[in-house]
Design a protein around this nucleic acid. Structure first.
Lengths: 334, 334
DNA sequence: CTGAAAGCGCTTACAG
DNA sequence: CTGAAAGCGCTTACAG
């Protein structure tokens, strides 16, 4: 049995109320009692019971974090940031893997509610009405990562995918490319799929370049899908000089497929990715790509969440700046 | 204010004791009351408060997980497995990032204790005496991942690194290689450093091959260190035909460095990695490597932990089987 | 089958 | 400055 506040009270010869006061740094005791109490705590190795505390305070100092998949490079970097910030503020984080499954998500929302978490970070998925309904009943703050919700004003923090894709393609154009193909992510993905394709189209348009359907292929963000998409593009866009892929994995898949067909990168084909995974620096040649400050996104989201918990005030969303990491897969066209 | 058990008791016209009974599926009420209670629960949208429950039951259905870094490929895959298994058993998992820092670890141990977690999974680091001392006072079960502790009998689940390295090198030998170099991980790392080097030496020895110090270089498991180590080996082991690296990242770094010097892989140099990261399949040529079932390791560890929590019994350690993933970086020597 | 009451380990008015 | 007591939302003997 772990010692309780009663034990220290007895040991220090004071009431539990007094012990509680010194524990919580409240006013109302002499220096002498304070010493006595601390000594007693020391001697019996007392640690407060956060559960009992939580029952009264209605604060658990715990937040929930939901990812479609905790093991993705994206999630794990974001999680690292969240954890760091949470720890700084004395919060714990419980991780939930939704598998992008509605039932699982609802189940999780329920257990998080029962466990009385103080707030929730919801990442990389659309916040369905159904989810929001329970969040509302839980009456806890939520912040979204890489996602927005139109019908409610929940703050989000994310990169502007549309703009980032636009910038990537414009970068290619500035390097002299006119025939630029793209491999999009999952076709109807409203978060990382559609906006990036739109940014691509917009960049072409602004620079007076025609959009040709044959120049656009789709994958699912994964390596293999990048290989396949490249095979397609080799037929439908044989004359393109540059390629923008909506993920590093697809970009690398495309590079692999291109190499199989004897294309040299960047001499015969320039390639740009999106994500800046660790592996982007490891491939040959190293991949030029779009970088999102994932760890920082996690930190910012967590900070916003804790701010909302502490103040009960609302908070603004935040578009975080992406950047172009120049490496060696883009060639300057004369 | 969320509704409490009192509210449903009032609504259903029964005592809170009765509500509690139907909630917990205990015997002692008529079918009619059961219906009434469920109806009341439904109507007012009641959810039990796990904190109040935890205070009495001394069970929080929460486990802690400590990693040196949650964002590493290793940790995130293991975490995925842990989360999956925990969820299946109705446990939540709170993640802790120790940064391999003793103070941070102790701090975390303390908050986990205050939060009354039911058990702990401790990954990829040596369980110091200091840590174990608080764990003992917490009186909760612990299981280690990819780590063992000599002075206490805490169960672990891991791959046999010594054996895995041995197998890798033996594989190379079977393919006809006699001059095999190695890039070891962090030199004094007792978990993933030393054992792999020992396995390498043992395999050479068993096959009557001499161990030459010049054939062994050290890195820190990272990509860059692999590049550097390869540069060294090119001088100290210019005639080697095969290389075993203690991590995929180092293997790929070595491949990159070798390529810079005009070596073709696997024609001029065979390479074997360790980890089977996603990127192992993406490099050209795809890397032959040692695979650990990370997700499964996480699951097994979690299952063992929950078993210990439930039964209070001890549990055996588990060596999980690694495998050799044959891809295209090892050439058969005539 | 059902309820009143004690108690889990704390915090917080309230009274002195 | 200090303590007795109520209460947070539950569970669990105990009595009926």
């Amino acid at each position: 049995m772990n010692p309780t506040i009663k034990d220290v009270a007895r040991k220090a010869n004071v009431s539990i109320a007094t012990v509680s006061r010194v524990l919580n740094n409240l006013p109302g005791y002499s220096d002498k009692t304070k010493q006595k109490v601390f000594q007693a705590i020391e001697e019996i190795g007392y640690q407060p019971n956060a559960i009992a505390r939580g029952l009264i305070n209605k604060r658990t100092h715990t937040i929930g974090v939901m990812f479609p998949s905790v093991s993705s490079a994206f999630s794990s970097d974001v999680l690292q940031g969240i954890e760091a910030s949470a720890h700084d503020h004395n919060y714990s984080v419980v991780v939930c893997n939704t598998d992008s499954d509605g039932k699982r998500t609802m189940k999780y929302l329920q257990v998080l509610r029962e466990k009385q978490i103080d707030g929730l970070i919801f990442s990389s998925e659309v916040l369905k009405k159904e989810y929001y309904a329970v969040l509302e009943r839980m009456n806890i703050p939520v912040v979204l990562i890489s996602s927005e919700s139109r019908f409610v004003k929940v703050p989000y923090v994310k990169v502007d995918d549309y703009q980032a894709a636009f910038d990537a393609v414009e970068y290619l154009i500035r390097k002299g490319h006119r025939k630029i193909a793209m491999i999009g992510g999952t076709k109807n993905d409203t978060i990382a799929g559609i906006p990036r394709v739109e940014g691509y189209k917009k960049a072409l348009e602004e620079h007076g370049l025609p959009f040709k359907p044959g120049y656009l292929a789709y994958g699912d963000f994964g390596f293999l899908s990048g290989c396949h998409a490249m095979e397609t593009l080799l037929k439908t866009a044989p004359d393109c000089t540059a390629l923008f892929a909506a993920s590093d994995e697809m970009a690398i898949g495309a590079m692999t497929a291109a190499a199989k067909h004897g294309l040299k990168i960047p001499d015969d084909l320039s390639v740009m990715g999106y994500d800046d995974l660790r592996l982007a620096q490891m491939v040959v040649p190293p991949l030029t790509t779009i970088s999102q400050p994932l760890c920082e996104i996690g930190k910012i989201a967590c900070e916003k969440l804790i701010y909302m918990i502490d103040t009960q005030e609302n908070v603004n969303s935040r578009i975080v700046t992406h950047s172009i990491i120049e490496r060696q897969t883009v060639r300057i066209l004369p």
